[in-house]
């Protein structure tokens, strides 16, 4: 974590030596007068220490107010001469740490700082390790398609997409209209997943699988898939020029498959590909987006 120390006395820095040397943290020193302008431009993921040594209680309170009003960074107070009488007031005003002269001389440890961050409730949103049901053997395809080679096996994000109510649609609609609906849906999918490098890969008559590269950690296809569900009514009005509402179901899965270019996939043997088609055709309900349980937790990514 990036630690910003606002002090007019460089000797204060010695207490932060351990944190400075830690590969997980960095410490930047700024004069106290720069607190306000820096705070205004600060994004998330920082921790601020303000040295209040020598300041009057009124000055301390005005700075606490400034720090408390900033949603972007939690903060702690350094009080080298231990002059503050009501330390609890600091915490009541939003501080997450108090460092007095003795503690500063001993030096702040990374373990202690870890607890401070946890207390400030900003450590928690640090990305958790991905808890995604992944195949036994993971062969990440990378964050894009550059390193994906034909004939090689990779782990991809596989999104099954199937048009609903097709039996009824086939009875009521011309083959031309059905072709248009299938083509329109494929176009919608291509545009919706373009931002995460998604490709409509295998397409049978009324359903298919879209592949997105998998870097071993992030399930990037989830948000565009949720967006497709949220905007289903709008998509029907604006993009399908038919009076019957068009519905589609989706299932997201992480699976292994040998990669072949789209259109050359007939000889592929992949258990995961079979599984996702099986799930899509048999288990998904109309209009549903299904994801394996741990994957369905939308994690805050700030």
């Amino acid at each position: 974590m990036r630690i910003l120390l606002f002090t007019d006395n460089k000797s204060c820095l010695a207490g932060f030596d351990t944190l400075r040397r830690s590969k997980n943290h960095s410490v930047e020193v700024h004069p106290r007068g720069k607190l306000k302008p820096i705070l205004e431009d600060l994004s998330h993921g920082h921790f601020i220490y303000l040295d209040i040594t020598g300041l009057s209680i009124a000055s301390v309170r005005s700075r606490l107010k400034l720090l408390g009003n900033s949603a972007s960074s939690p903060f702690g107070i350094v009080d080298r001469n231990s002059t503050l009488k009501d330390i609890a007031e600091l915490f009541q005003r939003g501080a997450s740490d108090y460092v007095d002269g003795r503690l500063l001389r001993e030096g702040l440890t990374t373990a202690r700082f870890g607890r401070v961050v946890e207390f400030a409730a900003i450590g928690a949103p640090e990305p958790e390790p991905a808890r995604i049901p992944v195949p036994m053997n993971v062969y990440p395809s990378g964050s894009g398609w550059d390193e994906v080679e034909q004939g090689q096996e990779y782990t991809f994000q596989m999104l099954y997409v199937g048009l609903d109510h097709m039996k009824e649609m086939r009875r009521k609609s011309s083959e031309d209209l059905l072709r248009t609906i299938r083509r329109t849906l494929q176009g919608i999918l291509s545009r919706a997943f373009a931002g995460v490098d998604g490709r409509v890969w295998v397409w049978k008559e009324d359903d298919g699988v879209l592949l997105c590269p998998f870097d071993g950690e992030r399930v990037t296809a989830l948000i565009p898939a949720v967006r497709l569900v949220l905007n289903r009514v709008l998509i029907n009005i604006e993009q399908f020029s038919v009076t019957t509402p068009i519905s589609w179901r989706m299932g997201l899965h992480l699976g292994n498959t040998p990669y072949e270019a789209s259109g050359e996939t007939s000889s592929i043997v992949s258990e995961d590909l079979n599984l996702i088609f099986h799930l899509g055709e048999r288990a998904l309900k109309p209009g549903q987006l299904a994801v394996p349980k741990p994957q369905s937790r939308l994690r805050r990514t700030k």
Binding site: S72, I223, R227, N231, L234, I237, R300, K302
Partner: peptide, 20 residues
Amino acid sequence: HSAVEILNELFLYNLISCPL
């Protein structure tokens, strides 16, 4: 249509990336 899409986008924004 714009307004409905905006509400949907803000729903996602609040869920995944809004710092507030």
